[in-house]
Amino acid sequence: MKRLIRLRVNGEPVETAVPANRTLLELLRDDLGLTGAKEGCGEGDCGACTVLLDGLPVSSCLVLALQAEGREVLTVEGLAQDGQLDLLQQAFVEEGGVQCGFCTPGMLLAAKSLLDAKPNPSEAEIRAAISGNLCRCTGYQKIVESVRRAADLRRAARRGP
């Protein structure tokens, strides 16, 4: 039996019918075709499925779609605006924060939530903020550098030219 839910995904209203056992991750990937969020473990241990739920990073594999009703979801597909990469995305591209790319969408969203709350985080704060997002390729070094660079880019952009 399905139920109708309404939520906002990447700023757009979504209305869809889901069965009770549908996770938010499945809703995004299978029903809405937003395959940016990945399933690496299905048990909340890897962070590949991270999305922002009302601005906070969560493992979408551990959220029922029904529990996302009425809430705001941001996925990696919602980061770039008008074909322009978000500064975080740009920093990951330039600093080598991406290798296989499987952790990248989740990593970006965890980092975004950090920078939205703390525009000038320390390295320890960056590491803590992404400590639920596993990466096997980079050893996190260039991811941390990417986030730091994004913070710099953001502050520069805010100050204006």
Partner: peptide
């Protein structure tokens, strides 16, 4: 930058 980085940061 990697040639595939853009696709990987946008999903």
């Amino acid at each position: 930058p990697r040639v595939d980085a853009g696709d990987k940061v946008t999903g």
